[in-house]
């Protein structure tokens, strides 16, 4: 069979709209999710037992069930309690709640990755625990989790495609619409796939760049 991409041209704006939806849903979920992730991490690392169990339980449930099932539950459950938000909101909320659990675990790994000796040095200088976290631990921890966080951003962007199953009009959804309209399935999927690939490659390159410029002090790998 011969491939012909010309039939897709009239749909280029549909592709781009889909891409844009994927990008902004990802950004919302990343920002909101990372913020909630901080709270989850604090709860999990905190002193209150009930809160610790609650946060740990939440993280484990999210990390051990598929995003698709989580999206289904949000998509179907919200209308059942009288909240009708539509696919955009459902996907944004679902991806946010999902991302929060993963980022919480990344923060935990980051704090644990900072050598204990640095905290001890702070203690020996007479610094208070809050000062130690703020002036000594935060930056090395951030540096150590930065690759994991940007990787999470890419995974989240790719995962936004799952939104198409609950009819979020993002890139995969657009791709399948074009495929169903033009019957140029392989061509449509190639274009869609390449767009995803391009964005994730740009994100990966940008994060590498950001890493070297943001953390010049880190000469050799992990601190």
């Amino acid at each position: 069979m011969a491939l012909y991409f010309g039939d897709l041209l009239p749909f280029s704006s549909l592709f781009l709209e889909g891409l844009w939806t994927a990008v902004y849903i990802t950004l919302i979920a990343m920002l909101a999710g990372s913020a909630i992730g901080v709270l989850l991490y604090l709860g999990k690392a905190g002193a209150r037992r009930a809160l610790r169990l609650l946060c740990t339980g939440y993280i484990e449930v999210i990390r051990n069930t598929p995003l698709l099932v989580q999206l289904y539950l949000i998509y179907f459950a919200l209308p059942a309690v009288g909240i009708n938000l539509g696919p955009v909101w459902a996907a944004a909320i679902g991806l946010t709640l999902n991302n929060a659990a993963y980022t919480a675990e990344i923060y935990r790994a980051g704090f644990e990755s900072v050598p204990y000796g640095l905290r001890e040095a702070g203690k020996a200088l007479g610094m208070k625990p809050a000062q130690i976290v703020r002036y000594i631990v935060i930056l090395p921890a951030t540096r150590n989790v930065f690759p994991a966080l940007t990787n999470q951003l890419i995974l989240l962007f790719l995962a936004s495609s799952i939104g198409s199953i609950i009819s979020l009009p993002e890139l995969t959804n657009a791709t399948m619409t074009v495929s169903n309209t033009t019957y140029r399935t392989i061509e449509a999927l190639t274009v869609g796939g390449l767009l995803y690939l391009a964005v994730s490659a740009v994100l990966a390159l940008a994060s590498k760049r950001a890493e070297t410029t943001l953390f010049r002090w880190a000469v050799s790998g992990h601190v």
């Binding site: 000796g117 040095a121 020996a124 200088l125 007479g126 610094m127 002090w217 601190v223």
Partner: peptide, 30 residues
Amino acid sequence: RQEVGMVFQHFNLFPHLRVIDNVMLAPLRV
């Protein structure tokens, strides 16, 4: 601890701070 200085086997310098900032940190913050 402010009256007792400590030097560690593995230095434990703060990797994200310049040398001068390592030395200035405690006087500034403590």
